[in-house]
Design a binder for these strands. Sequence first.
DNA 1: CTCCGAATAGAACGATCGCTCTAGAGCGAT
DNA 2: ATCGCTCTAGAGCGATCGTTCTATTCGGAG
Lengths: 184, 184
Amino acid sequence: MAELLRVQGYGATGVKQVAAAAQAPIGSIYHHFPGGKREIAAAVLRTTGAAYIQLVPLLLDPYDDLVAGVGAFFEAAADDMENTGWANMCPVGTVTGEVADSEPGIRAVAAEVIGSWVDDASAYLVGRGVADPDARAVVFAMLGSLEGAFILSRGLRSSEPLRAAGRAMAAYVATVPQGAPARS
Amino acid sequence: MAELLRVQGYGATGVKQVAAAAQAPIGSIYHHFPGGKREIAAAVLRTTGAAYIQLVPLLLDPYDDLVAGVGAFFEAAADDMENTGWANMCPVGTVTGEVADSEPGIRAVAAEVIGSWVDDASAYLVGRGVADPDARAVVFAMLGSLEGAFILSRGLRSSEPLRAAGRAMAAYVATVPQGAPARS
DNA sequence: CTCCGAATAGAACGATCGCTCTAGAGCGAT
DNA sequence: ATCGCTCTAGAGCGATCGTTCTATTCGGAG
């Protein structure tokens, strides 16, 4: 279950717990996911990965100014964290940090998901006038900054890291050369 | 043991394992750390926190130009990760992300450590001419960017996120107003 | 030398976890 | 009606983990 993995992490969520949350017996879980916990986690990462990438155009399209959009993106994340009591926001980041060195299969899936995020998001930025090699670097910087700020904010129970990251990334994006947006 | 917690995380390192690494029996571990695994982790976080903060002046002092120093800081981290085979670099970030929502005591210690990092590092930046409220935001942005890039680089087995983060933070730091460095 | 707290030493316990195994319910095809 | 297959259902297994317990050794004070 995506929600459990997101708020609890990989190690802390048991398969009995996801069975209970899904109102399904353990046998059914293992029937549909013969690969066990690893396969469940991989499926969750893939589906949440596909869902989260849609947030990028959704949150950025309303802003003609990309710099303002980036700032608003981080502010929205900060507000969400405050309102949920500092709940974990991104299962991909948490799970990656947790099992990157102990679960090679899950790490590979996480790498897939992150890679597709970077591809899609940088294509979006190119569509908004950012030059191609720059776009990829911008996405890496923003994604890293976001994931890191999530951790700091959860640890400190404060939105200050997230908001500082947003201002920093907005200032950074303002420095990268930006042509006219491609027509849609 | 600091090294084990850094490369393996909190959940994945057992106290029997740290006993073996310390060449001490389990009884001795629990004699010196009656609080058990939690107390051991707290001690590790505090000591590594105190050690890591010293890296800031150590790595930044050689650079008269703060922007160049920031870039070199991230490049050094990227080189380290490559040379160690993408080993985890910062136990504080990993442990925080892992247990922030399940171990309140450890989370509090991590918050202490991160808070002292921010205090010390922003004091250093003020000493180098960054205005006071800006300095704190810069430190939060850099620390978050660093921790997030660690996760991405470990997941992707690539230093690209770390190097992109370094270029982004250098560009950002270049935009914050900077007075003359205070005399030392 | 005697004594006593500190530290060492590791066997053993209870809990938990991922997973397997067996049993049966549901259901379309023949 | 009967077969065969998918899916449900959960008890139970083996392994592992953090922790506790008892026994023993060490070393300085009296």
